[in-house]
Nucleic acid binder design. Structure first.
Length: 732
DNA sequence: ATAGGGTTAG
């Protein structure tokens, strides 16, 4: 029993040590800032603030209890106020107070990131209860160390302590992906047994777990069964829909929430704006923006960051910038968002200008800032600028952070700098090992005080983006064998390809004209459930067609549940390329009746096909169709193609007529097609009529001069083939 | 009493 706290009677020596550590910390300004910030947060956002306020009140009580003990380093300003309340506490609860204070200490240490102090108190505590363990579990869960959280859960049960509702809720938040599906259902059973399945907090945690580990449908079933829903329950469901990129459904849920009379909070506005960015849907975004004008949310930094992003994604950069400029407070994310927006609009100068500004006001760029800069370097194709950014990243010690490392990989790989790409890639360890080591060391932190912070705080393994960047680079530079080798290595390392990786792998097979490997990749695509992906489907059509397998190409095409204009054009182009012009034309008619207008590219494909097959009259028919077709304006490529065809067939007057009818300034390819035809049919006079035009258009074009000299000298046949190539290349 | 369900950029 503690009569007078000043005398320290009855305080456990270990606890006293912990208190001393804490007191040292109280005397520094750091804690004052932290609690002041926290209090501000509570008053700014009422949602969830009440809980935090209570918690802070309790913490203050503990602080004051410590002050009352008059340990060295405590400042008197922390003391007096609730001294009496605490004193009564200590008297009333006697020894039980010890575990209460210990739990508070652990919790405070953890919230300040003082892990070794926390573990010291935990390990030497004379008594632990369910709360002591739950504090650790919740800490690990919130810091993404799910496996450690479950390790504590087992340890706790071995120690004979039964988990309660709060423990289960904390663990549910650690179930972050399908890997935890089984453990998650086990927790679900725990809750059902105790009758908490539809309890608001427990049920909401369940909803989140199902969103992460199962399907949104299963999550929704639990959601509608909740006895009560608050806006946090809605926020979780809406957020999950946004995460799965179901922007429309997220908006529908949001409207349903409003209809049921639940008021949105800052989390929900944040998600609604995210949903509008995904779709993108400016009008819905404007509506919600109007709702928050004049409200407390207008000040909220998260909401504003999402708004800036939303306007940028909805093609309204000006509004995005206006919001950014008017934000009462900006954090690094705000700067990152606006810089990313500028980068998306190709405004590299503004990106770098803002980068310098944010540094000038004392913010420290992070991995996202730098990866944004790198995308700019990449779009400018300025590898030396990229290298200087890389140097700055190295100095900032951020080279191994995944977003940056992946952006660097992407840049080097797509610029063909494979040596540098590999140097970086090899530094990034395989991800599974890294996290296992981290986890393994971590799980004994509180049991035996063994620790190794570096391993888990900076571990950056390669993920699917890292591999994909490398494979993409290899394919782009024609190293298809290497690309496919890495595609296999990646899977050996346990990293599953995503839709981009699969698409690139298919391209590599197409590049190798290797339909056997192509078939194998196709099977993996089906196995992994990517067969309905549009861009993968397009790549498959192209792969089969290039390998000469038009039937399989068409089978993929006709099996696609969704097609974009590329799908149609690839199919049409494949037929045209193989001389099956009628098939190409029929598919283009289908395309038309499917409500997707044939575009410039479609006609280029067909005209190229006609050119290869020498089908003059059909080409003219398609050409006239195109001219009459409202949405397509014939381009220089189209004219060049048809003029070339007419010329080859000897119909030089028709060709001449067409040259004169071109409604815009024809380019050099058009003239060269025509003059080349004049030459092969010995219409030298006609050629001379147009030669001044051509040379005037491109006085320094060597090929044009060679062509003219050939015409004057009676011609050399070989130029024809180079012209064909130039024409083909200009079509692509 | 202390522990509980949630945010932004590749």
């Amino acid at each position: 029993m503690i009569q007078n706290p000043r005398c320290n009677h009855g305080v456990h020596p270990l606890l006293k040590h912990g208190l001393e550590c804490l007191c040292k910390f109280f005397s520094t300004s750091a804690l004052c800032c932290t609690s002041a910030d926290r209090l501000k947060k509570c008053t700014l956002f009422s949602d969830g603030g009440e809980y935090k306020e209570n918690r802070d009140r309790e913490r203050r009580k503990v602080m004051e209890a410590l002050a009352a003990l008059q340990l060295p380093g405590i400042s008197s300003s922390h003391c007096v106020l609730q001294n009496k309340v605490i004193h009564n506490h200590l008297v009333k609860h006697g020894l039980e107070t010890e575990v209460f204070l210990i739990n508070n200490l652990i919790s405070i240490y953890l919230s300040l990131g003082m892990l070794s102090e926390a573990s010291q108190v935990f390990n030497s505590a004379p008594k632990r209860n369910v709360v002591s363990w739950t504090i650790l579990i919740s800490y690990e869960a919130q810091h993404g160390c799910s496996k450690v959280a479950f390790a504590y859960f087992h340890r706790m049960q071995e120690d004979g302590i039964k988990p309660n509702k709060v423990t289960i809720i904390s663990l549910l938040s650690a179930c972050c992906n399908p890997e935890f599906r089984q453990r998650g259902s086990l927790l679900h059973v725990f809750l059902v047994e105790d009758g908490y399945e539809t309890h608001m907090v427990a049920g909401t945690a369940l909803v989140r777990m199902y969103c992460n580990c199962s399907t949104l449908e299963n999550a929704y079933r639990l959601f509608i069964a909740l006895e009560e829903k608050d806006n946090m329950s809605w926020a979780i469901l809406i957020s999950a829909h946004v995460q799965h990129e179901y922007g429309d459904n997220a908006i529908l849920l949001y409207k349903q929430m409003l209809q049921e009379g639940t008021l949105p909070n800052n989390y929900i506005y944040n998600k609604v704006f995210n949903a509008c960015s995904i779709i993108p849907d400016l009008s819905e975004g404007l509506k919600s923006h109007a709702r928050i004008i004049g409200s407390q949310f207008e000040q909220c930094i998260y909401v504003n960051n999402a708004l800036v992003d939303m306007y940028a994604k909805c093609r309204s950069l000006e509004s995005a910038h206006k919001i950014f400029m008017n934000m009462p407070r900006k954090d690094l994310v705000s700067w990152n968002v606006i810089m990313t927006a500028f980068a998306q609009y190709g405004l590299g100068d503004l990106v770098f200008k803002h980068f310098n500004e944010l540094k000038a006001i004392g913010l420290k760029p992070d991995e996202y800032t730098y990866s944004c800069l790198l995308t700019v370097c990449m779009s400018l194709e300025d590898i030396s600028l990229g290298r200087s950014v890389h140097e700055e990243i190295r100095k900032a010690g951020l080279e191994c952070r995944l977003p940056v490392a992946n952006a660097l990989l992407d840049m080097y790989s797509k610029s063909g700098c494979f040596e540098e790409a590999h140097r970086l890639f090899d530094k990034m360890r395989p991800r599974n090992n890294a996290s296992e080591i981290g986890m393994g060391t971590r799980s004994v932190l509180f049991i035996s005080s063994k620790q190794d912070h570096k391993l888990f705080s900076h571990g950056s393994g390669r993920d699917v983006f890292s591999w994909t960047a490398l494979i993409q680079g290899y394919t782009q530079y024609g190293h298809h064998h290497d690309a496919l080798d890495f595609f296999l290595d990646m899977q050996m390392e346990g990293v599953r390809p995503n839709h981009v990786t699969f698409g690139v792998a298919v391209n590599a097979c197409a590049g190798l004209l290797d339909v056997e490997i192509g078939n194998i990749v196709h099977m993996s695509i089906i196995q992994d459930g990517y067969e309905d992906d549009v861009s993968i489907g397009n790549a498959l059509i192209d792969m089969y067609a290039r390998c000469g397998n038009l039937e399989d190409a068409h089978r993929v095409f006709s099996g696609m549940p969704n097609r974009d204009s590329v799908s149609w054009n690839v199919m049409i182009g494949s037929y045209a390329e193989h001389g099956k012009v009628m098939d190409a034309f029929n598919v283009s008619l289908e395309m038309e009746s499917a409500g997707m207008g044939p575009d410039e590219f479609t006609f280029s494909c067909i005209l190229t096909g006609c050119r290869h097959a020498g089908m003059v009259s059909d080409a003219c028919h398609f050409f006239n169709h195109m001219i009459r077709y409202n949405h397509v304006t014939a381009s220089a490529h189209h004219y060049a193609s048809i003029i070339d065809l007419l010329g080859r067939a000897g119909q030089l007057h028709e060709a001449e007529d067409l040259v004169n009818r071109i409604p815009f300034q024809p380019n050099i390819v058009v003239f060269m097609s025509f003059l080349s035809a004049c030459k092969s049919h010995s219409h030298i006079d006609l050629a001379h009529e147009f030669s001044d035009h051509m040379i005037g258009l491109a006085p320094t074009n060597v090929a044009a001069h060679v062509l003219l000299s050939n015409i004057s000298n009676g011609g050399i046949r070989q130029l024809d083939t180079s012209l064909m190539e130039a024409l083909d290349n200009s079509m692509r």
